[in-house]
């Protein structure tokens, strides 16, 4: 199985407390075409709106912006997915009556947009230095029409029968979230889970490497 290529840049934005640009995919195919890029920024802990204040923990909010136009229903779904992941991983109880805001901007989509956005959010959290229980890393697995599982998106979008997005933590490799689209069998799901879990280790190695070189 081919390895995925990652690259990232930390601290790309000046206003947020932490920011990261995360890129997943192959740069060699053609510049800017074979990859997925997301920019994430994190503000926090900041002042919270009156109606969203929680007295025992920080309220985590996430806003996702598509490449063009206003966010639609599907984007709202990604938003809530990422918000839930961040809420479990951040130590929200340390900052009661405050808010943590995560903003994501899609730059380029080549299929694995959701996992790329989740990874960008994790790097933004690490960059801001906010307290976290664990890191989270995400991998997308594609099921082609030929019933093959692969981590790289097929060149033609029509070849995709289903795709799976898994999010793991870095301590015990537990699943934090799973998101699927399309039809598949139970065995295929389990195989995809196994494949993604192995790949997620590479994601965490990449996170460590990029944080260390930036330090």
């Amino acid at each position: 199985m081919e390895k995925l290529n990652f690259s990232c840049k930390l601290g790309v934005l000046s206003r947020p407390d932490g920011s990261a640009m995360f890129c997943e995919g192959d740069l060699k195919i053609s510049s800017f075409l074979g990859e997925t890029i997301v920019i994430a920024g994190l503000y926090g802990p900041v002042e919270v709106k009156m109606q969203k204040v929680l007295i025992d923990k920080a309220s985590v909010e996430c806003s996702y912006r598509p490449k063009s136009g206003l966010p639609g229903v599907e984007d709202r779904l990604y938003e809530s997915l990422i918000r839930n992941i961040c809420e479990t991983s951040l130590m929200a109880a340390l900052y009661p009556r405050s808010a943590v805001l995560i903003t994501l901007q899609e730059m380029h989509n080549n299929g694995q947009l959701i996992s790329c956005a989740i990874n960008a959010a994790c790097l933004a959290c690490l960059d801001s230095g906010i307290d976290m229980k664990f890191m989270f890393g995400s991998v997308t697995c594609f099921l082609t029409k030929q019933e093959e599982l692969c981590l790289k998106p097929p060149i033609n979008e029509k070849d995709i029968k289903a795709f799976f997005v898994f999010v793991f933590d870095n301590t015990k490799g537990r699943i934090l979230a799973s998101h699927t689209k399309g039809s598949f069998s139970k065995e295929q799901y389990e195989e995809a889970l196994h494949l993604s879990r192995e790949e997620s280790k590479n994601v965490f190695i990449f996170f460590k490497k990029s944080m260390h070189t930036n330090d």
Binding site: D17, G18, G44, D127, S128, G129, I130, D215
Partner: peptide, 20 residues
């Protein structure tokens, strides 16, 4: 994320880049 620091006899902390 950061460097694990230790000061004798029993103090531990992380030197990271926090912004807030």
């Amino acid at each position: 994320a950061g460097k694990l620091c230790f000061k004798e006899p029993n103090t531990y902390w992380i030197e990271g880049k926090r912004n807030r």
